[in-house]
Design a protein around this nucleic acid. Structure first.
Lengths: 214, 214
DNA sequence: ACAAAAAGTTTCCTATAAGAAACTTTTTTA
DNA sequence: TAAAAAAGTTTCTTATAGGAAACTTTTTGT
């Protein structure tokens, strides 16, 4: 159902790619949630063949085909395999499909170092995508000053979930109920933000972190 | 998200953080999804008998019993009926059971390169925080192969919003309704995922991107 | 405690999901 | 183009889910 991504397509290859969609409309009205359609989108989005998807999920090629064509209603077991194998977000499969027409279109690009700044005592916050309001996620880059160990703050707590990725340096993540962990460049963490949390620097240089809050 | 303002505290509070519950490194193993147990909890929580639940969901009393006793793996259809009839939160059913002791918060650490891999033709997906399901955000690191310009896939579209940050290399972000943009290391973008989008590499080496979907 | 009713489980049968392999269609290669 | 390969679909079979009703256990009322 996706349109074709015409623009940057290079001639001969282009044709190849156009051919992908247009499977039977298969208007199975039984399931208002077009599970199969979505699974297919996800698989194709990852450029996988049924064969490859089969290997990843442990489900038979034919089974996948039938799921995608809405010929069967997969079991919980099958769906779990799907989710684990393809990295599918299950909740999404249970929500109503997005009408094509509703394709809205907000976009905001933030260049390196061009975010909106919020300097504070220990962290520096650089808000990304600050132009867009009403976002589901709030991304920002934080700079953790070197060795702020002694005077780091109390637990931070707030609604939602938080993801962080260490971009440089070495930090220590403290979260309530868990052991502190050291995180280096490339390491990431995901946690409930209602749980107390705090990050401190462990390196001689400042550490930078990408943070996304939902 | 009011997480600022906590930094001003000092010394004496520092102690606070030392004492936190000792708890093994979380969520690293795949726990059995105790679907049935959870369904039962929910039903009983609502003070419903199987008979009543049956009326609400349209599933047979016996079927419900078997689901709760983990004797069968319900189909997508059945799960939808369950969810609609009992107001069950599907994501929860797919998350590993949370031990009581850590009920107050979930956390998942993913080390660099240790995420769950999803190799595909053009991108490599490394799922982060893969142990946690039912998340509001799905973070992953993608490797965009060098010059995959010609054979990238069709528009990708899905529900939600997406944030991306270029970790290395140089890529081109195509989004429907907008001009393509070149993004280099440190640049980021935020957009509605229902809008067609695709990323290709522009550099000689592979590019890596952090992606977060909500 | 006893019956009766209600709640829950199991059995048995039918419908349907899952897998293997045959078959069809699409894409690639020469 | 034709032939081969790859991708996808369908068929056939087996395993298992879903529903009706019998059966068992628990609760309620006297």
């Amino acid at each position: 159902m996706s349109e074709q991504a015409h623009f940057l397509r290079r001639e001969k290859e282009a044709v190849t790619i156009q051919r992908r969609k247009v499977q039977g409309e298969a208007g199975s009205s039984v399931e208002p949630l077009q599970l199969g359609k979505r699974v297919r989108e996800i698989r194709l989005g990852r450029n996988l063949t049924l064969e490859e998807a089969s290997n990843l999920t442990g489900l038979a090629r034919s089974t996948l085909s039938k799921i995608e064509n809405e010929q069967i209603s997969p079991t919980f077991t099958a769906m779990t395999k799907l989710a684990n194998g393809l990295g599918i977000d299950i909740p999404q499969l249970f929500s109503p499909a997005i009408p094509e027409t509703q394709a809205s279109g907000r976009r905001d690009i933030t260049r390196k170092g061009q975010g909106k700044l919020h300097p504070t005592a220990t962290y520096d916050h650089e808000l990304l995508a600050a132009e867009l309001s009403g976002k589901r996620m709030i991304p920002y880059r934080a700079t953790i000053r070197a060795r702020t160990f002694e005077d780091y703050p109390d637990w931070v707590r707030h609604e939602g979930e938080e993801f962080m990725l260490v971009l440089s340096g070495k930090v220590c993540l403290f979260t309530e109920f868990y052991q502190p962990v050291e995180l280096e460049e490339g390491d990431s963490a995901y946690y409930d933000a209602a749980m107390g949390h705090v990050v401190t620097s462990l390196s001689d240089e400042d550490a930078t972190i990408l943070w996304v809050t939902a």
